[in-house]
């Protein structure tokens, strides 16, 4: 009986050892990505990798769909890293998925929490709003303001530990 059972496991293993078909372009994608990131350099990575996506439409979207939106945004970004900048400030893009918003603003330590200073631009794609902000190295608290009145932290970023004024913020570290 045991021999028969082990024979079955061996047949399972044999079937699983057969080669699997993988996308031939996988190697190309890997190499395209690593070519943008030479080793042993200090400034190669950060920049446009910092993407902040907030699924405001979570009320309307199922959680799985929201996750898919997040995943898609990140996947697209992975394949298209922007060239690194050499200036002291890093261009940090912020993205918010808010299909029903009429306006979105970014507020934080970097703009004196001025709700008029950094509006996001609607892309017309899946309700995404974007803005890119040059930020010197440092640690920043920030939030989004929807339609001038609704404050929203970034669910894809760490939540700031103190919530002094009743609406939570997110934190972002920008490196040198």
């Amino acid at each position: 009986m045991r021999e028969l059972e082990d024979e079955l496991i061996e047949r399972v293993a044999e079937a699983l050892r057969q080669p699997v078909h993988l996308d031939a372009a996988l190697d190309v994608r890997v190499m395209a990505e690593v070519r943008t990131r030479p080793l042993r350099r200090s400034n190669w990575f950060l920049r446009s990798r910092t993407i902040r996506v907030t699924p405001l439409g979570a009320l309307a979207l199922a959680a799985g769909v929201a996750a898919l939106v997040l995943g898609t945004a990140f996947a697209a970004l992975r394949l298209r890293p922007a060239p690194a900048t050499v200036s002291a400030a890093s261009a940090v893009p912020f993205v918010l998925v808010a299909p029903e918003a009429r306006s979105v603003a970014l507020v934080g330590d970097f703009n004196d929490w001025d709700t008029a200073a950094t509006p996001l631009r609607a892309t017309g794609l899946s309700g995404a709003w974007v803005v890119t902000v040059p930020l010197p190295p440092g640690r920043y608290r920030y939030a989004f303001v929807i339609d001038g009145m609704r404050w929203l932290p970034d669910p894809g970023a760490p939540r700031a530990p103190d919530d002094d004024f009743g609406t939570p913020n997110s934190v972002l570290t920008v490196g040198t």
């Binding site: 080669p19 699997v20 993988l22 996988l26 890997v30 190499m31 690593v34 030479p38 080793l39 042993r40």
Partner: peptide, 24 residues
């Protein structure tokens, strides 16, 4: 590590199938 990025393609080609099989 010496800076020849293209040599990494050799490592990718060598291990893609076996690693891919496990992942699938």
């Amino acid at each position: 590590l010496a800076g020849d990025v293209e040599a990494y393609a050799g490592l990718v080609a060598r291990y893609r199938d076996r690693l891919g099989r496990y992942a699938v």
